[in-house]
Each structure stands twice: as C-alpha cells, then as structure tokens.
C-alpha cells in the first residue's frame, strides 16, 4: 500500500536518513519518536509537501515521489488541524469534494454519513474558532476522510487535547477506524496512543527509523538499547480477555480490572519477580518457566524466561539475587507479576 524506500532529507534542523517501511491496506501504523526526530518531516514527504533528497515513495504500487500532493490520494491532518478559518465547518468538510467539482448538495449528501459517525452534525454551520479542540479534531478528520483517501496521515492528533478528552477520543478513534476501515500513519510521542490504536509500530530516533513491525514484536525485541530505552516496556502479552482474565495461549493472566475482548497487556521488566520456588505473595499472576538467556548489565541481569508455552517474559534481577538463587541459563523458575503493574490497552 505505502512503501517508503530509503528516504533521506535535510530540512532546517531536521534530518531523515535511510528511512524505509511499509504499511498494508487498512493497517494503522503508529510512528513514535521524541520531539525533533523528524516525524512531521516524514509525513510532509509522504504527503508530497516536501521532496526527499533521496529515496522513493510508492503508494498503491505507483511511484509518487515526483507527483504533487493533489495527485497522491493522501489526506493530511496536521497537529494544529489547520481548519480553514474563513469557512464554516461544513465548507471545511466538503472542501475536497467541491474542489473535485462535486456540487454543494452532492458534497453535503456524501458527507452526511461520516458527519453522523463522528458526531458533529450540530457544528456544521459554525466557524472553526467557535468549536472546541476536540471538535476541531473531528472536523479535521471528517475533512480528511470524506475524500476517501488511500492513506490518512495524522500528525500528533491528540497533542492539543486535555487528558480527559484525549482518552475518550482515542477510544472513539479506535471505533471509527473499525467502522470506516481507513489506512493510517499516525505520528506521536505517546506510548499510550501506540498501544490503544496501533497495528504496527515504528520507532524514529534522530532521523532514523530504528525499528518497525508488529507492536508486540517491536516491544519484545526492540533491536537495540536506544529503542528499548525509548519504549520502556519490554513485556507485551496479547490475547482475549474475559471477566478480568486474559487468556494468552495456555496462560491465564489476571488483570487489574474487568475487561472483555481483544486486549494488549504491557509491563516493565522491573515489575517481574523471579523465584526458585512458588512464593506466597500479593502477586496474583504466577507462572512456571525456564531461563533461556541471561544478559549482564552491570549491577543487574536482564533475564529472559520462556514460559511453558513459548511465551517470553523479561525480568531485571540484581546480581546478589542471581547468586543467592543460583540462577543460570536453563534454570526452572517461577515468574510473579502483580496485576497492578500491568498496563492494559
């Protein structure tokens, strides 16, 4: 669907080097990176606003590197939403349709379903400065989606919203995405957005795409230390939840609260406790496993434990504890994880 091939660009203080990745149809790709990593520049290159110094952009099998933005079929929602201030909400939404020569009534008719799904029917006659930031985000999304783009580019779509609205809009975005089935590239520095929305994750650090792939794969195997440090969470389990219990293969993981459906659970290696024998503790999740790797990090060991059914969990254990328990590769251990340290997405 979208192929970014070895893209490089220097622009003001930003630089992208050798960036390559793919997004498949109906996939939601979240690109994370700290401020200044070059995330917006990459979106602008894909949208056709800036030309790369090197590399190619292929959309739907067609090389669009030399095409202007209007011929790419890619919608772009900047961080500021960039609603046209001199137009009503309705005129903003129908702008792309009208530009394509559609009559006003046809365009309005076409937008109706989308407007209803996004819950913005009551805003149509207002001007953008008269609506809230959360409403502006919906309008910008409607304007981008109504033209049925091949791909939608979202630049920090939740950055301008306060925490309360943010979490509500994120779960709504998840629902809209399922209902409308669009393909998206979403850039952010928020890990929460990755976990709630993403199918795939890319990590952009200092202008280089250091790692990309399925979220679970990237987090459980960050590839290098910088990516691991940036992500923080090294353990991800994915499965179906029912009544506060997550089923992952043969394992039953007790969750901190009741939730149902497909969920993703993350936890940090420092929240994973290892012991040689079953222990009595408040940790409600205890599994048996075998140590497959021990990495010496100085005062700590980073220990990889393979649970009975090929599910891998990583733990940090102090050197003193390793000696005391006599841990080595192949040792059988119990893994305890407090339900309260689990992040459920």
């Amino acid at each position: 669907m979208l192929e970014v091939q070895r893209v490089g660009k220097r622009w003001k203080e930003f630089e992208l080097r050798d960036v390559s990745f793919r997004i498949e149809r109906r996939e939601y790709f979240v690109l994370v990176g700290p401020s200044g990593a070059g995330k917006t520049l990459l979106l602008e290159i894909i949208a056709g606003i800036r030309r790369p110094d090197e590399g190619r952009i292929v959309i739907g099998g067609k090389d669009v590197t030399d095409l202007p933005p209007e011929e790419r079929g890619v919608s772009y929602v900047p961080q500021s939403y960039a609603l046209f201030p001199h137009m009503s909400v309705l005129d903003n939404i129908t702008y792309g349709l009208r530009i394509r020569g559609m009559s006003r009534s046809e365009a309005e008719k076409k937008a109706t379903g989308l407007v209803r799904t996004l819950g913005i029917e009551h805003l149509l006659n207002r001007k953008p400065h008269c609506i809230s930031a959360g409403e502006q985000q919906r309008v910008a999304l409607a304007r981008a989606l109504v033209v049925e783009p091949i791909l939608i580019l979202l630049d920090e779509p939740f950055a301008n919203l306060d925490m309360r609205i943010k979490s509500r809009l994120m779960s709504e975005m998840k629902r809209w995405r399922e209902e409308l089935g669009f393909t998206a590239l979403h850039v952010t520095h928020s890990f929460e957005e990755v976990m709630v929305l993403g199918d795939k994750l890319g990590v952009l650090l200092h202008g280089r795409l250091r790692r990309w792939g399925k979220i679970g794969d990237v987090i459980s195997d960050p590839g290098d230390e910088d990516v691991a440090k940036f992500l923080g969470y090294e353990n991800v389990l994915e499965g179906m939840a029912e009544d506060g219990c997550l089923r992952v293969g043969e394992l039953n993981v007790i969750l901190p609260f009741t939730v149902s459906g497909k969920v993703r659970v993350c936890f940090r290696p420092e929240d994973v406790l290892l012991s040689v024998e079953r222990i009595d503790s408040s940790a409600r999740n205890q599994f048996k496993g075998r140590i497959t790797e021990m990495e010496d990090l100085g005062p700590l060991f980073r220990i990889t434990v393979d649970l009975d059914n090929d599910i891998v969990v990583r733990s940090y254990v102090t050197k003193a504890s390793v000696l005391e328990m006599g841990l080595r590769e192949g040792s059988k251990v119990y893994v305890s994880i407090k339900a309260s340290s689990l992040k459920v997405f």
Binding site: A47, I49, V74, P85, I99, R143
Partner: peptide, 27 residues
C-alpha cells in the same frame, strides 16, 4: 498565514492555483 492550511488544501486535491484562490487569497 499558517502554511499548513495550504498544505492541507493541496492534499485535499487543490492545485497551487486553486489553493491560492480558495484559501490564501480569501484569508
């Protein structure tokens, strides 16, 4: 004028000229 307004208009299908006449000039 925020250049991103023009960028968005372009991605929505407007040529440079249409972007100027429908967004930049009216503003």
């Amino acid at each position: 004028i925020d250049e991103r307004l023009e960028h968005v208009a372009r991605t929505l299908g407007a040529s440079k000229w249409r972007t100027f006449t429908t967004v930049t000039f009216p503003l």
